[in-house]
Design a protein around this nucleic acid. Structure first.
Lengths: 202, 202
DNA sequence: TAACAAGTTGACCGCGCGGTCCGGTTATCG
DNA sequence: CGATAACCGGACCGCGCGGTCAACTTGTTA
């Protein structure tokens, strides 16, 4: 599940292995300690020198971006796989469940909304957004989601369950499901009240 | 709105003024740059030396805690003021609207869930929680909120609208109202689906 | 296998942070 | 007013961070 962009010369065997180790170690470290995890710790976890990190990723931000792109594409693939489901409403719920199940999102999740990103991240971003938009449109046509909710709304609300359940110290690791259920009920047409603000555009 | 605990000897006039300036400057700085805002910047904004900050608040965490306590008590007071409203459902919605309107919550909001806090913060915390619990109980009895939702749930969901709308770069400052409306619809009894996980305890 | 380019490493750098401290200043009160 | 203690300020400290570099190792290729 690692992005290995086609290069002029392919990576040397050990270099490719180290790159993969690094991405895995970084993902773990970020999941545990948030984005403040130090590059030195990541290198140690990968069993690699600090210099190697900067050879593969010129900047800590580049490393983060690489992971974010992987995660986003991952999720987009899952979303697209659900596009031809029979029950569009269930498909959307399933998608949000998959998104919530990606534990490693943690602090990474909040990256998904901002705008100051390298082109490749923005592109991955746009792809995911497209998938969600379609998923939501189908669910809306299907009558499974209220008429005044947009893909952007779902895109933004996607990480809220994880965010909310983050702050329960000894909570069940599945607690986010509870809040996804509540929020999803808020997206349903039954008993919906008019929304006070227009949906934003990203 | 500043907590000035009764001391053995009252603060000197200039010291009290500086303390207030400091709290205001810190709140602004945290609201703008998040908790990473440096103490030096806060001091500069307050027009005060860095040493003065540490005279009033031995640690940066103490400064944060002071602000958090103020915010929490503020919100609790607003909540308690709504306890004798006629329409318990409207009161709860009003409370959540007030909570969302407190712009300075930003990065401070995420403090409200964690457990590693000084006693005075935990105490303020408990007070706010109590108020919310009562508010929710009344709304539940009033049939304005689904039966399977607890005070803890609302406590946790309280900051979600702000969190969600944070990631819209040029969004309306009132965008959070949209997401509050959606989430609140999810709290209503109409069209509620069973929740997959039990409510947590803090 | 020889030779070279690609990759690795960890000591090193500059920076900005939270926190300290002491010489100078100022509110306060007899 | 004058003495005193409370208070202020900013130079200073140690630390850990992201990032650099030159000496060394290793996969690759002819």
């Amino acid at each position: 599940m690692v992005t290995t962009p086609a290069q002029a010369r392919p990576l040397r065997a050990d270099a490719a292995r180290n790159r993969a180790l690094l991405l895995a170690a970084a993902a773990d470290e970020f999941a545990e300690h948030g984005l403040e995890a130090s590059v030195a710790d990541i290198a140690r976890r990968a069993g690699v020198g600090k210099g190697t990190v900067f050879r593969h990723f010129p900047t800590k931000d580049d490393l983060i971006a690489a992971i974010v792109v992987d995660r986003i594409n991952d999720l987009r693939a899952a979303g697209e796989r659900l596009l031809d489901a029979d029950d569009a409403g269930a498909a959307l719920l399933e998608f949000l469940t998959i998104a919530g199940g990606r534990r490693q999102q943690r602090d990474l999740s909040f990256l998904m909304g901002s705008g100051e990103w390298k082109p490749d991240v923005q592109q991955a971003h746009a792809g995911l957004f497209q998938a969600i938009e379609t998923l939501v449109a189908r669910a809306r046509e299907h009558g499974a989601v209220r008429a005044d909710v947009t893909g952007t709304d779902v895109f933004l609300l996607m990480c809220a369950p994880n965010y909310v359940s983050e702050y329960v110290p000894n909570g069940s690791p599945d607690l986010w499901r509870r809040y996804l259920a509540i929020i999803f009920d808020g997206l349903r047409p039954e008993g919906a009240h008019a929304l006070p603000q227009p949906s934003p555009t990203l």
